[in-house]
């Protein structure tokens, strides 16, 4: 008789010890982890304030792993699960404008993006030092204003040249 009580009592005490947080006290743990910070801007330079963000893990590219909203300055931070290495897909969208960004996390893909110094071990996080943080940008943003200006002028000159060519031929 004594024994049959003892086992549940031992179990209860052990369990109870673990689920102490059922009481009103709150316990919050933290750990430093690899996080990805996004900055979404329109190509005019304005931030995409309150834009919707969907994160897709490499395992399931069809259902979002995480959805959220960028803040007023177009920033969005999330921590991908390091146990799922591969290309994480992030979609930012607002009013039919948006972009898809592939972010390599861990594994072999992670090395590709950070292999500038050969000393890094595969899958090491990209946030363990200021100098290591990498900035990946989607298309269109990595051109400086003079570059864009020159491109625009070249294209326009192409059109004007075409016009002049056919004008000259007419005469």
């Amino acid at each position: 008789m004594k024994r049959t009580f003892a086992i549940p009592l031992v179990l209860m005490s052990v369990m109870g010890w673990q689920v102490r947080a059922i009481a009103h006290g709150v316990e919050i743990n933290y750990q430093a982890t690899e996080a990805i910070a996004l900055q979404a801007n329109y190509d005019s330079g304005e931030p995409m304030a309150e834009a919707q963000v969907s994160v897709y893990s490499p395992e399931d590219p069809s259902t979002p792993w995480l959805t959220g909203t960028a803040d007023a300055s177009g920033r969005f931070v999330f921590a991908p699960d390091p146990s799922i290495p591969g290309n994480w897909e992030v979609q930012v969208r607002q009013a039919g404008h948006g972009e898809i960004l592939n972010i390599p996390v861990g594994g072999e893909e992670g090395v590709l993006a950070t292999s500038a110094d050969g000393s890094r071990e595969p899958g090491a996080s990209a946030t363990d030092g200021e100098s290591d943080s990498q900035i990946v940008s989607s298309t269109g943003d990595n051109l400086s204003l003079p570059q864009k200006g020159l491109m625009a002028v070249s294209v326009i000159w192409g059109f004007v040249g075409t016009a002049l060519f056919f004008l000259a031929r007419k005469k």
Binding site: S44, A95, A152, V155, I156, F159, V160, T162, A163, L164, F166, L167, R169, K170
Partner: peptide, 27 residues
Amino acid sequence: TEELPKASLLTAAFFIASSINIPVPPS
């Protein structure tokens, strides 16, 4: 080809027009 100079110039205008942003609050 007679209309081509005009078409070409307006293509240039169309090409560059999208770079001209007009602020209409909030966007």
